[in-house]
Simulated scan of single mutants.
Amino acid sequence: MPENKICPECGGLLVEDAWETVKTNDDGSYTIDAFLAYKCIQRCGYYKPIDRKDQP
């Protein structure tokens, strides 16, 4: 059985999900980076990108 991961910010459960970050560039354009991450289900805002070594 997989081990549950706990949010270090609020103690909520972390689940695997997609996450994206949006960066505004100096010229006014945007760069969107999408990746898999552990995301807090309590919506505190915590996330941690998933490294390949973190996956079974």
Score class of each variant (00 low, 15 high):
I32K: 11
Y30P: 00
T21H: 00
C7R: 02
L36Q: 14
Y38S: 02
A37R: 02
D54F: 08
R52I: 11
I6V: 14
Y47F: 14
D33F: 07
L14K: 04
L14G: 03
V22H: 07
L14W: 06
D26H: 06
D26Q: 14
D27M: 05
E20I: 01
G45P: 03
D26V: 12
K5F: 06
L13S: 06
V22E: 13
S29I: 05
S29N: 12
K23P: 00
I6Y: 02
I50K: 02
T24S: 04
D27T: 09
P49E: 15
T31A: 09
Q42A: 14
L13A: 03
N25W: 09
G11M: 04
P2R: 08
T21W: 00
L36D: 15
N4S: 10
E9F: 09
I41F: 07
W19P: 00
G12F: 07
F35N: 08
K5H: 09
G11Q: 03
C44D: 12
Y30Q: 14
G11D: 02
E3L: 09
P49L: 12
C7T: 02
C7P: 01
Y30S: 09
V15E: 15
P56I: 03
I50G: 01
R52C: 01
D26F: 09
L14Y: 06
I41S: 10
A18Q: 11
G45C: 11
E16G: 07
T21F: 00
V15I: 15
Y30L: 14
D26M: 10
I41K: 12
P49M: 13
I41P: 00
L13M: 06
D27Y: 09
S29V: 05
